[in-house]
């Protein structure tokens, strides 16, 4: 199998806690209960979550999460 791997990063200094990531890819992103900022649960999510991760990246209002392939 030569499936693409995704490397996900989250930058809490940019995050405004809007929760689009936790809503759209809950297996990969959460929000901490105090400040509501992004918590990365899975920096190398399995293939079946890739679509949700890409959705979350596109929906994050403050460009706080990103993905790299490979």
């Amino acid at each position: 199998m030569n499936a693409v791997t995704l490397r996900v990063t989250a930058d809490r200094t940019k995050c405004c806690g809007a929760g689009m990531c936790a809503l759209n890819a809950p297996d990969v992103f959460d929000q901490d209960p105090d400040e509501g900022l992004v918590v990365l649960l899975d920096p190398k999510p399995p293939h079946e979550l890739h679509r949700a991760v890409h959705d979350a990246v596109g929906l994050c209002p403050s460009s706080a999460i990103s993905v790299e392939e490979g």
Binding site: C16, G17, A22, L23, Q31, E35, G36, L37
Partner: peptide
């Protein structure tokens, strides 16, 4: 803005 907003974001997270 971020200083004040952050005092409330925890109350409005998706899980809550």
């Amino acid at each position: 803005h971020a200083r004040l907003r952050k005092m409330l974001t925890g109350d409005f997270i998706v899980k809550r």
